[in-house]
Design a protein around this nucleic acid. Sequence first.
RNA 1: UGGGUCGUCGCCAAGCGGUAAGGCACGGGGUUUUGAUCUCCGCAUACCAAGGUUCGAAUCCUUGCGACCCAGCCA
Length: 553
Amino acid sequence: MTTNENATPVNFIRHIIDNDLKIGKNQGQVVTRFPPEPNGYLHIGHAKSICLNFGIAAAYNGTCNLRFDDTNPEKESDEYVQAIMRDVEWLGFQWHELRHASDYFEQLYDYAVQLIKDGKAYVDSSTPEQMRANRGSLTEPGKASPDRERSIADNLDLFTRMRAGEFADGQYVLRAKIDMASPNMNMRDPTIYRIRRVHHQRTGDNWCLYPMYDYTHCISDALEGITHSICTLEFEDHRPLYDWVLDELQTPRHPQQIEFARLQLEYTIVSKRKLNQLVMEKHVNGWDDPRMPTIAGLRRAGVTPAAIRDFCERIGLTKQNSWIEMGVLEYCIREDLNENALRAMAVLQPLRVVIDNYPDDQTELLEVSNHPQKPELGKRQIPFAKTILIEQDDFAEVPPPKYKRLVEGGEVRLRGSYVIRCNEIIKDSAGNIIELRCSYDPDTLGKNPEGRKVKGVIHWVSEAHAQAAEVRLYNRLFTVPNPDNEENFLTVVNPNSLEILQGCRVEPSLSGAAIESRYQFERTGYFCVDKDSTAELMVFNRTVTLRDNWVKD
RNA sequence: UGGGUCGUCGCCAAGCGGUAAGGCACGGGGUUUUGAUCUCCGCAUACCAAGGUUCGAAUCCUUGCGACCCAGCCA
């Protein structure tokens, strides 16, 4: 059944929520949250979660919080907090409330005390090695720590002193007392507090013990009144713990954790460690390098928020591990840009063309449309003169089969301008083609020549009027679909992932275009003005090529 | 060999007992002053496999097979 009521497609989470609403669960409320850890930049995989959580909230008239899971100060920083907020907003979402798990440290501590008083948690002096040894294995039950039966009074005393800073880092931990024989490893008395004298980006040095994720996340959700706590598949095994904590604590709310399969995109990696390595070892130029799968990288490449949102919708939402082909993302980018990017002409690898029968000092301003299908986007004027530049690829001394561009003795249409004929090829002493001598047909401006058909159309710029530019062509960062499968992912970094073209010339209307503005360079692709641009030298990043159905033999 | 989860077209993905949606990719036709866009057509007798229940099964049952996740004082 299809309905047009909701813009977002059906999926299993919406089925769950629809049913919850039907049976009156959560008083009809839908409250979600996007809970990143501020220990790195957001990437395309996060975008899926962001679109999901904010999208669900919007679709059900609910709300979505942005909550930083900042329980491990060793890896987290305010720089990441700022970057994450910037990226979420750029993607087009507004959070209902901005929260931090650290906002709840005091309550979390109180809840821990309650757990101890209920005999559901104990202070353990086991070392990490002992704990590992006593945890058992996937097929063998674990063994109880000698501290497991410590008295409640002693646990309370020790925990209080842990907070007071009486013990060294790692000397004690607080553990939930659940079941050392559970087939679910997460239930074998998981650590819920550890002593760590690390400065926290928000709470400073107020704390020397920090709560663990499993303990913190569920309580944070409950405190915020989250109704549907959506996370990725690897947390499925943690759900019993999530529920255990909230059940034992009798929290006023008990959110439902729902897991979905995280995004896996061919030819990309999203491991924070590996992404960081690419940046640190200079395989890319920073976190916002257009080859990076980060939101910042996609943005700098010229990808639009709308394209990313569309992508996240198209790929679906299930519990199946799957790999999305790059083509899907590229399709979404092209679809949005085709609709919204203004057209322009840019010659990436120039070849001079002199039009012998065109007046020496004449310049004509030709009016061309900014978008072939959308006249409302207006027109602009482009100077045409005796000497122009065309793409080297658009001329062939020995044309391949079905070639429909310029050849010696042949004609071609200059986009938005006249039809020209190539009369002579000029070469340098090394035999390189350096110039074409052509003639134009004055009677072909805005109309087809009579008695003959010109099948090719090529783009051009006036040499004297063109704006100088550097164009950066980006290709996929890896040479294999799944770099994570490699023993060393660095061995499959694409050595040709970036091609820098110097000496490009773009039409003068592009001079001074704003950073991040996007254009379709006709016949070559979509490009975005890079922040490295200067008044003299503009810099463009290629977002994606145009589709090319021309099958060269 | 413990527990959790998942198997529908090359890649995603609907489907929830009534006889296989849709998208991407791919192939072909048309339009076009972008080899773009747009448009039309084609693209799973078949749903991991094998049994079974049923008038009827991708959907229910059984047994296999395959894949992914879990033994951090990470999230």
